[in-house]
Design a protein around this nucleic acid. Sequence first.
RNA 1: AGGCGCGUAGCUCAGCUGGUUAGAGCGCCUGCUUGACAUGCAGGAGGUCGGCGGUUCGAGUCCGCCCGUGCCUACCA
Length: 847
Amino acid sequence: MVPEKPVLEGLEEKWRARWDAAHAYRFDRQARREDVFAIDTPPPTVSGSLHVGHVFSYTHTDVIARYQRMRGKAVFYPMGWDDNGLPTERRVQNFYGVRCDPSLPYDPAFVPPAKPGKQPISVSRPNFVELCERLTAEDEAVFERLWRYLGLSVDWSMTYATISAASRSVSQLAFLRLIQRDLAYQLEAPTLWDVDFRTAVAQAELEDREMPGAYHRVRFARPDAGFVEVETTRPELLPSCVALVAHPDDPRYQPLFGTEVVTPLFGVPVPLKAHPLADPEKGSGVAMICTFGDITDVTWWRELSLPVRAVVQANGAFRPVTWGAEGWESHDPARAQTHYDQLAGQSAVKARARIVELLRESGDLLGEPRPITHHVKFFEKGDRPLEIVTSRQWFIRTMAEREALLERGRTLEWHPEYMRARFENWVNGLNGDWCVSRQRFFGVPFPVWYRVRDDGTTNFDARLLPDEADLPVDPSTDVPAGFTAAQRGVPGGFIGDPDVMDTWATSSLTPFIVCGWGGRDDALFKQTFPMHLRPQAHDIIRTWLFSTVLRSHLELDMLPWAHTAISGWVLDPDRKKMSKSKGNVVTPMALLEEHGSDAVRYWAAKGGPGVDTAFEPGQMKVGRRLAIKLLNASKFVLARTEPIGPVTEPIDLGMLGELVALEQKVTDSLDAYDYAAALRDIEAFFWTFCDYYIELVKRRRQADDAAARSAISASRIALSAVLRMFAPFTPFVTEEVWSWWQTGSIHQAQWPATSLPEAATSGEIDTYMRACAVTRRIREERSALNLGFRVPVEAEMRLPATHQEAWEQMRGDVLGGSNVAAARVTFDLADDAPLEVHLTPQTLPEV
RNA sequence: AGGCGCGUAGCUCAGCUGGUUAGAGCGCCUGCUUGACAUGCAGGAGGUCGGCGGUUCGAGUCCGCCCGUGCCUACCA
């Protein structure tokens, strides 16, 4: 039934509830593999907040999902929540005012305070994890409500979370398999380290920030009483200096290679080495190698076989050192000790200030520090520069796979194509294997225990691994086979690996998690893997996309999906990325409520694949207008649905000819993931349909003859097809209109493939176009003469000779549609000449 | 510093493998209570397609250089 006054308000809630009740988007487990379209949806970080960028890119995916469903695919479209990891820990700490202290025992009676107190409460790790789970459950409910309101056609029965038992199980199983094949290994090595979070971080999590710094010119004594001068930005690392280095071809230092110099303040003899990575242009051409100031230090240390003198501890403070002891030899241990004792326990920043004073006093600082700005590596979520700390970490082999990964990237179909460069860029820039262990609490634990030697030390080579059937395990509470809980941490017993995995180590397995890999659901895995589409934004190509390709490559020797569709970012009007810190984010729910979900989706879908798109309420208003137009135009078409009959009139056939061409074009665009082009074309057709076709046939269809039947039938055919083509973009309004006159959901209807009536020839499209052109000329003329539509006019027209034949076929529609009472027409213009139309108002007889 | 985008009407953008007077929507201006829609309809104004060179019968479209802008990578001596 067509409502008297159709409105958009309330459609979101109405249809969300009905789709939900009907399980409209449930995946068909019986579908054949070739009929499945599987989507690997990005699990949003639930501890963060959803922003317009999410609405933007998830809409893109949903358009594709709905399109594929209408093409007859069994769409596999699960949603996940990324609740695993540091962001959740931070949110829980702030929300409840707690801190995790793994040394505390579990307190089953613990209740968090209603409001966080001034001082954080220390809680055990199990208590902390409980709070994480509790808060993420609340966050997930909010997220789900938004997604449903937006109209994502997700199968909510398959929702997963990256910290769930199933995800932990998959994550641990995949890890065990890597260990078995020596693709994961543990190593005590210098690693990038965040001193506040006290954890190792991976290359993918780094970001550079511009920081103020200063060059300090420091002199090292040479045996011949001269000096070597070194420029350093980190003078505080002087006590950890193990060598100086210059370029092998640098004539200034060639005579000194192989000789020793002595560090100022600490009197440590260190060699002067040659290495091609030293840049003669930088500073004095000589660099101080410390253990470790940056990753170049690590390279030099390894390649030049240098000793370690580490001073920065895991918490960022300088460790205590006994000078003169082994490894800390000095020409003057007492003096070194006096100096160093002023640094011990200090942070890098404080130690730097102190050592500059000491160097100045000793005369070893030449001139004053020269301020500069330079780029410093940070953990992307961190507040202080990363240090390099030697620690035992797990790594997944990536360096050996670089060529193979590039090949995977070439096989994958990228939308848009040029995003592949981001991937290749990243793979080519990898500088080490992937460090996957984190010294944190809320994450997937490593499924590993170690034997404890009789002397109480841990024997990391004696690993105890769980049976695959027992996964997931928590080695901090579970006990390895053959041991008892009482043997934990005691000589001769065992100890669990204390670390958790990098969140990407789990997120990289989303295709495995959702498809039932690892024996959890073999039938589902066969049905859905490899998946068809990985949609995501371009900022996580180096993390999520890369790591997923890597894991699938290592485990299954194949790509996890055939296509990837990369969304751009939402930019604010100043072309900056929208972000919380800039205070320019818009709450998505408020946005949807203000403009309507269809309208917001319309805006989102206009942002083509990969294109950064401005946040523009204007476009949402346009989308809203479109949705309203759909209601009204549909109402008008459906106001006369009978009598029907064969489509025979040239104008009708021409319009349908256009429609068929449109369907082909739109289908091609969507097959190529170009939803923006598809939407533009449908929209253009629809407005022409409203402004010209409907106006042309308005009067004709009021009759009860064959010509009327033709118009009514053609209108219905076109409306049906247009609604279905709009359905992936504006699911609510199209479903609403569909329900007026059709049974079933439009979202389960077939994608339109209109066939032209027998009567159609190629000529009708021209007739239709000419009818539109003549109509347009008449309207221009009316406007120029200020004659309102209601004023009947007489027309004198000159048309191109080529119009003559068509004219007989369109005459009635054109004159009727433009309220022209009488027309005199001649056909003597050249084909490309402008149509000539002259109107004179017809004086109506007085009524 | 390398790589990849982008630079077209006041704004947001479309212009595919080069081909007649460069398009859309918004905004603006003018007119219209047309029997689906004033949440609407009709019409209009508005662009030397970032710049300079080149290829071509012909370039917004291809090539080179430059400028602006954004992102990715690199950059702690």
